[in-house]
Design a binder for these strands. Structure first.
Lengths: 125, 125
DNA sequence: GAAACTAGTTACCTCCAGGAAACTAACTCG
DNA sequence: CGAGTTAGTTTCCTGGAGGTAACTAGTTTC
């Protein structure tokens, strides 16, 4: 008999792995976190606003990422009857449930940087 | 005067964006979450154990990902003086601080799936 | 000495995420 | 009519993530 998996074979674990996969797929790509973070801060924002706020993103990518996020019901897209037609993007109530994840990730990153700095200053050489 | 950024320009926000970037870079790639999740459950594990547990991963990728994670001090690698030489990988105390993030992500994924199912069963057509 | 275990490494290939830049299309202003 | 605004779309291109498979190298067992 060959050795077999002993850790990842329970149903609970498979569900977890699947769930992580789901979330990471929805948040995949280079820009989703930035866009969501910006929308969480900025509320309703127009396409050009986002293009200016999300540092470095090209219109193609912004458009694509927003479409993805609209499909996944993380943002709503509203066309406004203004004269040069404008489009508002806003994070949905559902999308805002991602805030805790983003907070955790941001906090971890911050403490990671702090830990690095601490080590550099205490361990010399 | 052109319109300028108004949301993402504060120092606090830049720190957050940087922090998110840091974290996501450290957790980048297809396999980190699986490996960390598996190590969190399994404790000390050898290379071949991980190869068996992490479903679908190739030795090349496992090796590379483990090296990344060792550099970032998320795991420790210990060579054991056993007869066919074995190597143990274990998550560090520091690496285990990622657990809350992984939990959040897993829980979000689970509730996402539940929400999808609920909608499918209530909204007909 | 062949097979099977340990832990990887190396070489080759492929696909696609994402960047750059130009373009569409409707409208306004001078 | 030309320039500038809005919100995108289209085309072309490249780097690198990740897959496959073979190979190294040491040890044990039959």
């Amino acid at each position: 008999m060959k050795k077999q998996s002993t850790v990842n074979t329970t149903g609970l674990c498979k569900t977890r792995i699947l769930a992580i996969k789901d979330t990471m797929e929805i948040l995949s790509g280079k820009w989703k976190f930035h866009i969501i973070g910006t929308l969480l801060l900025g509320g309703k924002m127009r396409f050009m606003d986002l293009l200016r706020e999300v540092d470095g993103i090209a219109p193609k990518m912004l458009s694509k990422e927003l479409q993805d996020m609209e499909i996944n019901q993380l943002v709503v897209r509203t066309v406004c009857n203004t004269k040069p037609i404008t489009v508002e993007y806003e994070i949905t109530e559902y999308g805002s449930t991602l805030a805790p994840i983003i907070d955790e990730i941001a906090n971890w990153g911050i403490s990671y940087r702090n830990a690095l700095l601490k080590k550099e200053s205490t361990v010399q050489g």
